[in-house]
């Protein structure tokens, strides 16, 4: 069990090392990257043994491990993970979908741009989580409020990136389209979309991390229904430091995995670009 988790963690670390810090990909570098985390874990274990005051903040590793086993065996963990991921993904689909549609509409139709963009930019100025009291008053402590806030967070990023991606298409590409006598649909699918794709994928990457952040935020602030942050909040009230630490680690790991999935998706969808370079 622990071996599997450690291996998964190592793989995640390696992935991040490769994708974000493109340096030499040798095992030696990767091992060096593991030194600091290992030292920190060692220091953690030593500090936890210094007395009950230290053990409160630095929960001994074996306690952490047994509470992890307990969480998994009670089956509770999966329910909460599924709930949190569900909120994030549902909102990503709703908010991201509307964002792509609105961004496209604003980029190709000037009247829509003029009518909508001031409202959009006004909304964008407010930090999404700052809207929680207002949305809470309007829609109550409900599942709907949670989805609405997280959807707003993803909607804002996707709209902007779709819009900017589509607007960044250079004139010369349209001229090529004219030479090839493309009709409007062809111009959109064969010229606009491929050029806008990198910006949209960047948007997706940000949208995923914002969706996750907002999910954690709404679960902490609207304490309704299951969710990882809900157990974390409950554990905080009960002063169960071990559960809180486990929840943070799981939230971090899941965020990391989603980020890596996006990186892989972007790489796959943008293969053609690297081939041209």
């Amino acid at each position: 069990m622990a071996g599997g988790a450690a291996a998964a963690l190592a793989r995640a670390l390696i992935e991040v090392g490769i994708s974000n810090v493109v340096t030499s990909k040798t095992w030696k570098t990767l091992l060096k990257g593991m030194v600091l985390p290992a030292l920190l874990i060692g220091a953690w274990q030593i500090l936890s043994g210094l007395g009950p005051r230290y053990a409160y903040a630095f929960v001994p590793l074996d306690t952490l491990f047994s509470s992890l086993v307990e969480l998994i065996q009670s089956g509770e963990l999966w329910v909460h993970i599924a709930a949190s991921l569900g909120t994030a993904l549902k909102s990503l689909a709703i908010g991201g979908g509307i964002g792509v549609l609105l961004g496209t509409a604003m980029a190709v139709a000037r009247p829509i741009d003029i009518a909508v963009s001031p409202l959009y930019h006004a909304l964008r100025q407010v930090p999404t989580l700052g809207l929680i009291p207002l949305i809470g008053l309007w829609f109550g402590n409900s599942e709907f409020s949670k989805i609405l806030v997280v959807s707003l967070a993803t909607f804002e990023v996707m709209t902007l990136n779709t819009y900017e991606g589509l607007r960044s298409v250079e004139r010369k590409y349209f001229e090529v389209g004219q030479v090839l006598t493309f009709n409007r649909a062809q111009i959109f699918w064969r010229i606009l979309l491929p050029v806008a794709l990198p910006s949209m994928l960047t948007g997706l990457m940000h949208a995923v991390s914002f969706a996750w952040l907002a999910t954690v935020g709404v679960e902490l602030l609207f304490t309704v229904g299951p969710g990882l942050s809900v157990i974390m909040e409950r554990a905080q009230m009960a002063e169960r430091m071990d559960t809180v630490i486990l929840c943070i680690s799981i939230i971090g790991l899941l965020g990391l995995c989603m980020n890596q999935l996006c990186v892989l998706l972007a790489r796959r969808l943008l293969r053609w670009r690297n081939a041209v370079d």
């Binding site: 090392g17 990257g33 600091l36 985390p37 920190l40 971090g252």
Partner: peptide, 12 residues
Amino acid sequence: TAPLFHVIRQVP
């Protein structure tokens, strides 16, 4: 430090 940095960066 880079691997640890990037992992912690991802935690909301």
